[in-house]
């Protein structure tokens, strides 16, 4: 779904919640006259379960779209191995292969990106512009942050992740 220039994606979880509560409401309204009398606010409430995630996704996607050019200008290309605690708060650009993807169903994907020097977690707090799959070669723009806000190893708070044409042959690090 597109709103303005922003491609909005609703997470499977939000859709599942909407479907479950719709079914519950249908069943309840069939068997209970009390519920039927409340449909005037229950139905809008039900749709809010979809509207709120869509609105949040739209807002975060448009914010990310606005700051991507800033990162494109300021982020420096670094090897993953050189990303360390002293770089917290620095915008970086990395290129690598997607080794694993987690939490995509929440619209909060976390990618494990590897280059020739090492691997790092890349966290995104919204859905990416394009569908990213494992083994894709990608370029990531983001900021170095700690995994759990104030503690933990350095990870990248991703602002933009895009597939690139370049290929990377990774050494066997196992």
């Amino acid at each position: 779904m597109k709103i303005g220039n922003v491609e909005v994606k609703v997470s499977i979880l939000a859709i599942a919640v909407f479907v479950v509560f719709t079914l519950l409401l249908l069943v309840a309204s069939v068997y209970s006259p009390d519920v039927r009398s409340q449909l005037i606010w229950l139905i809008p409430g039900l749709f809010m379960l979809l509207v709120i995630p869509i609105a949040l996704n739209y807002m975060s996607r448009s914010q990310y779209a606005d700051i991507t050019p800033v990162y494109e200008a300021e982020a420096k290309s670094v090897r993953i191995k050189l990303i360390n605690e002293n770089m917290i708060g620095k915008p970086v650009r990395i290129q690598g292969v997607v080794e694993k993807i987690r939490f995509q169903f929440l619209n909060r994907p976390q990618y494990i990106i590897a280059d020739r020097s090492g691997e790092i977690s890349v966290k995104m707090f919204t859905s990416p512009d394009e569908d990213i799959h494992e083994h894709d070669v990608v370029e990531v723009l983001g900021m170095v942050i700690r995994r759990y806000i104030a503690v933990g190893d350095p990870v990248i708070n991703c602002v933009s992740i895009k597939k690139t044409e370049n290929s990377i042959s990774l050494p066997d690090r196992k």
């Binding site: 191995k81 050189l82 360390n84 605690e85 002293n86 020097s117 090492g118």
Partner: peptide
């Protein structure tokens, strides 16, 4: 000392 972890990552390459 604030960067020994980084140096260790570089050398273990």
């Amino acid at each position: 000392r604030t960067a020994t972890a980084c140096a260790a990552r570089i050398i273990s390459g």
